[in-house]
C-alpha cells in the first residue's frame, strides 16, 4: 500500500468519526466500558491465580510416624521419593514438644511426664500443582507411617473462587462483547450510509473492493484502539492507586504489580480493541456495503 493511499484511508476514517460525532462518542464510551470490564476481569483472575500459587507454596502435609519406628531416616528417605514432594523436614519428638510448649506454655507439656508420647514427624512441602490428597494417600502407604494430615482446604477454596469468577466473568464478558460489537456495527453502518454515493462512484470508476473497504475498517479499528487506550489508562491508574492503598496489607493480600504485568494488560486490551473494532466493521460491511 502506498503511503499516500494509507493517508487517504486514514483521512476518510477520521472524517467518518468526526461526521457522526454523537455516535462516535457513544460507541467510544461503550467500547471503553466493555474493555474496562474485561480488564477488571483480567486483573481479578490474574491476582487470584497469583494468590493461589503463593498459597500452594504454603500447603504442607504432615506425616506422623509410628512410635515403634526406630530409624526415622529410612521412612524419610521413602517419603522424599514420593512424586510431588519438593522437600521434607524432619520434626523430632523433642521439637514437637517444644512447639507444644511454645504454643501452650508450661501446661502444654504437663501431661508429657518424662516420657514424650509425641511421635516423630515429617513435614512435606509440595511441588507446585501437586495434589496434597494424592500425596497424603501415598504417604499413608509408606511403612512406619501412623497418620497423615494435610491442610489444603484454603487453597481449594481459592481454586473454587477462581472457577466461579471465570464462569460469571465469561458470561458477563460475552454480554459485554455483544454490546460492543453491536455499537461498532451500527457506527460503521452510519458511515456506510453517509458515504453510499461515494462508494457507488468509486466502484463505477474501478476502485477495488479492498480500496473501498479500508476506510470503514480503519474507522472501526481506530474506535477499538481508542477505547482500549482509554480503558487501559483508567485501569492502570485505578489499579496503581489500589496497590498503593493496600501496600500495608501486602502480607495478607498480595497484589500483582510491576511493568511486565502492565504490559500484559496493555497487550490484552489493545488486542481486544483491535479485534472488536475490526470484526465489528467487517460484520457491518458484510451487511450494509453492497460492493
Amino acid at each position: 500500500m502506498k503511503p499516500r493511499t494509507f493517508g487517504y484511508f486514514l483521512r476518510e476514517a477520521l472524517h467518518g468519526l468526526v461526521r457522526n460525532r454523537l455516535m462516535t462518542i457513544t460507541a467510544l464510551g461503550i467500547i471503553t466500558i466493555g474493555l474496562f470490564l474485561f480488564g477488571i476481569f483480567l486483573l481479578l483472575t490474574a491476582n487470584l491465580r497469583y494468590f493461589t500459587t503463593l498459597a500452594w507454596k504454603e500447603v504442607e502435609v504432615r506425616v506422623f510416624l509410628q512410635p515403634s519406628v526406630t530409624d526415622p531416616a529410612t521412612v524419610g528417605a521413602q517419603l522424599a521419593t514420593l512424586p510431588g514432594v519438593a522437600k521434607i523436614t524432619f520434626v523430632p519428638k523433642a521439637e514437637g514438644a517444644a512447639t507444644l510448649e511454645r504454643l501452650f506454655g508450661q501446661q502444654g507439656t504437663l501431661f508429657l511426664n518424662d516420657e514424650n508420647p509425641l511421635p516423630d514427624a515429617y513435614t512435606l512441602s509440595l511441588a507446585e500443582k501437586a495434589d496434597p490428597q494424592e500425596i497424603a494417600k501415598l504417604a499413608t502407604a509408606v511403612p512406619g507411617v501412623e497418620e497423615v494430615i494435610c491442610g489444603q482446604d484454603f487453597v481449594e477454596f481459592l481454586e473454587m473462587i477462581i472457577q466461579l469468577t471465570l464462569i460469571v466473568g465469561l458470561i458477563l464478558l460475552t454480554l459485554t462483547a455483544l454490546a460492543v460489537l453491536y455499537i461498532v456495527v451500527n457506527t460503521i453502518q452510519l458511515t456506510v450510509y453517509a458515504r453510499r454515493k461515494e462508494v457507488e462512484i468509486m466502484k463505477l470508476v474501478g476502485a477495488t473492493d479492498s480500496f473501498v473497504r479500508w476506510p470503514f475498517l480503519l474507522e472501526g479499528i481506530i474506535l477499538g484502539l481508542l477505547g482500549a487506550g482509554l480503558a487501559f489508562l483508567l485501569l492502570s491508574k485505578g489499579y496503581g492507586f489500589l496497590v498503593h492503598r493496600l501496600r500495608l496489607y501486602r502480607r495478607f493480600l498480595p497484589l500483582l504489580s510491576g511493568g511486565e504485568f502492565q504490559t500484559h494488560l496493555m497487550v490484552a486490551l489493545f488486542t481486544m480493541g483491535l479485534f472488536f473494532g475490526g470484526f465489528g466493521s467487517h460484520v457491518s460491511l458484510k451487511r450494509y456495503l453492497k460492493v
Partner: peptide, 18 residues
Amino acid sequence: LPQKTVYENVAFALEVIE
C-alpha cells in the same frame, strides 16, 4: 459528489484507482 469541487470530483476517479 456535492461536497467536492469540480476538480476534486474529476480527480476522485483517478485517486481511488491509485
